[in-house]
Amino acid sequence: MTTTHTGPAIVTRGLTRHFTSRKQTVEAVQGLDLEIGQGELVAFLGPNGAGKSTTLRMLTTLIPPTSGTASVAGHDVVTGQRDVRQAIGFVGQGNGAGHRQLGRDELISQGRAHGLSRADAHRRAGELIADLDLEAVADRKVSSLSGGQRRRLDIAMGLVHLPRVLFLDEPSTGLDPQNRINLQELIQRLHAETGSTVVLTTHYLEEADALAGRVIVVDHGRVIADDSAARLKSGLGDLVRLGFGSASDAARAAGRLSRVPDSRVDTSAETVDLRVKDGSAMVGEVLADLAADGVPPTRVEVARPTLDDVFLDLTGRSLRETQQTPEPTATEIESEVAA
């Protein structure tokens, strides 16, 4: 570890990155101004193509910014590349461990790359293997490990040198739900134990919600919201979804519900959505009122606001729908992977 540094872990000023391919310019990241304090656990949440990976790639010195500046652990990502690399751990979108290698060998080699002595590198590899529950597979070829095991190995690689800032790009993509939850618990535990700053990206709302103290919502290369998940959601009301026997009943009920103060009502066919603060508390009253009016709902659901609602509220698009946008063509994916 180089000098201890007391300022924020990450500072960006007007951080911007453009890509030009086939005469077209993609503004992947546009003027990011961020400050992330030491010890924070932050999630970048946004749909595919929002610019999350590009941001991480700039912060981890893989690609230089087109304009603007960024510093990580007190070092500039362009002029202090080597210091940044010493200070950070990076778990990329792919597999950090080589497929033809043994897990333990990769951990040792990574430790040596960070300047550990041979003995320390071996000891540290052993610790991480035990800590991340990799004993059974650490001496096997990486290509033979399951997705979840490989991901744990990747994380172990990122932790070899006790980094002050740990970056994880889509750590749980490709994992089944059980493994995803295990991984989230692991990240939280590591964060609590090491006190490192942790920055991860995700397009899973549940993940950002469950994991991070601070959620930075990005879309089209810009930050559109930056707060705790609870505060982001508290501005939106609960969703009360009411089903009716017919569209005319629904329309009649919608008319009556529009009188609820500070609420929003959306009708589609036989369903009426009422969004209102503390909706769960007033649902009894609403049902009684509609029954008295002769249009009792046949179905009722009450949902607390989700980050998806936050995204919808901010952009007019659903984060879930955005996932279904067409995938980039094969060559684009390849160049992205290789880039």
Binding site: L62, R85, G92, G98, A113
Partner: peptide
Amino acid sequence: SNLMEEMQSGSHERQLVSPL
């Protein structure tokens, strides 16, 4: 071709971010 495989899998990227 071995390096190409590592570029595809992500281990090349991991090495680029290391202090090597």
